[in-house]
């Protein structure tokens, strides 16, 4: 069963990075995810502030704006997709993720399986 872990940073520093995140913590976590054989995919955002939002209206008109970060308290910093037996195991991996600490959060969502 695949789950997506959406990693949200609690606060953004002046350079657009997540506050209070040590790169070595992330490297250690990434290694654990790979070593355990649960890694499916994962990426991290280049920074937390660069984004463009595209909307297409009913009449086909396209609007592009910059990211809606002014009102968002948490911003997406990256994600993992992991393959584990059940939700409790996915929650355990989410709790170990450095992104769940320091005011950040990890949203765990089950991924649809159209094959079964």
């Amino acid at each position: 069963m695949k789950y997506m872990l959406l990693i949200n940073a609690g606060a953004v520093d002046v350079e657009g990075g997540a506050v209070g995140c040590a790169p070595e913590d992330w490297m250690a976590y990434d290694k654990q995810v790979h070593d355990a054989g649960v890694f499916v995919s994962g990426e991290s955002m280049a920074d937390l502030v660069t984004a463009a939002v595209v909307r297409v209206a009913d009449d086909g008109r396209r609007t592009v704006t910059d990211g809606p970060f002014a009102e968002a308290r948490e911003v997406l910093g990256g994600f993992y997709v992991i393959d584990v037996p059940d939700l409790d195991v996915a929650l355990e991996w989410a709790a170990r993720c450095p992104g769940a600490r320091g005011g950040g959060s990890v949203v765990v969502r089950p991924i649809a399986d159209f094959g079964a």
Partner: peptide, 10 residues
């Protein structure tokens, strides 16, 4: 079923 909440004692 969808989230596959397990049937287990923590």
């Amino acid at each position: 079923r969808t989230a596959r909440i397990p049937f287990r004692v923590p």
